[in-house]
Computed example of a mutant assay.
Amino acid sequence: MLDGRKNDLKKITKIEVQKKNEQRFNIYIDEAFACGVDIAVLTEFGLAKGMEVTDELLEQLTDHETHRKAINRALVYLGARVRSEKEVIEDLQKKEYEEDAIDAAMLYLRENKFVDDNAFAKMFCRTMVNTTLKGPQTIKRELRQKGIGENDTEEALEYFTDELQDEHLYKVLTKAARTQHNVSQVKLKQKLQTTVMTKGYFNNKDIMDAVLQEFVSDEEEEDALKLQYEKFERKFSKYKGYERKSKIVKGLMQKGFRYEDIQNFLAAQEEY
């Protein structure tokens, strides 16, 4: 027990188990309720009925109890799933714990291996790779948002090999291509390039070309050009001659068809 002047001493007159939680105890000093503590604090300070305490010791008890509450809150939060250190800290801040209580909680969690950003990053990356089609850049960004450092992030991403990235990218681009109907290769390529960026992948020309050829062959592009031409022909039916032709050409070019292909198609239509 800490030293103190005789007239500062108070005495614990009662210790009782809390009704709703057998792991917590109410401490009474000089017959008045002083504070509640959990069993870890009770044991660590050796609290017992008849024990004399000082104001300084009471302050230590209060601080220690607050730290224990922060630790317990963190353990509950970690019970749902593995978290990064930043996630735990932000949760404790949201619960309005003071900085010293948060520091004490994080020290306890680190020492007892309840938080480990390196292990968290590896687990997170494996989960994303095995259950989603998110690209490496997206996974990297999400790890950084969770407070994971550069070294841990790069080490975790080693699991996402080039071979796996190519396999996933092909699936992503194939899925995107299936949503595009009767479009030119240029238009589809623009769509796929946007998909590569938004999904967090690096551009891969070989995979891009393979998907383009799979979904819009030269013959299919001719069919798409014909279909779009017929739509524009109806749309601009009120116009005549050169003005009508100009509007159709402009519309087809906006759809991504090459000017040369459009002119050849129109020439064939006129011959027909």
Rank of each mutant, 00 (worst) to 15 (best):
D63Q: 07
V115A: 04
L61D: 02
N151G: 00
H64D: 10
K146E: 01
K113R: 14
H64P: 02
L107D: 13
K86C: 02
K95H: 07
D55K: 07
V115I: 15
D116T: 04
M106W: 15
E85G: 00
K95Q: 14
D166G: 02
F114E: 15
N118V: 09
I89E: 13
C125E: 05
L109E: 13
M106Q: 08
Q137F: 09
I102S: 08
D152M: 03
R81E: 04
I139H: 01
D166T: 10
K146P: 08
E65M: 06
T127H: 09
E150G: 06
L58G: 15
Y97V: 02
T153F: 01
A104L: 11
E96F: 05
R73Q: 04
T131F: 06
K94N: 11
M128T: 07
V88Y: 05
D116W: 08
E142P: 00
E163C: 06
N118S: 14
I102K: 00
V129F: 06
E150Y: 00
E98S: 12
D63A: 10
E59T: 08
E150I: 12
L92P: 00
R81W: 00
R144D: 01
Q60H: 10
T62R: 14
I89F: 13
E65F: 04
A121D: 11
D55E: 14
A70V: 12
R68L: 11
L164D: 06
R144E: 06
A80H: 02
L75R: 08
H67T: 03
A70P: 13
L75G: 10
D116I: 04
L143Y: 00
D55H: 05
N130M: 06
R144W: 07
H64L: 03
V76A: 09
M106V: 14
L57I: 08
E163N: 08
I139F: 03
N118A: 15
S84Q: 02
Y77C: 01
N72M: 11
R110Q: 06
E85D: 05
S84F: 04
E155A: 14
A70N: 02
L157M: 10
T131L: 08
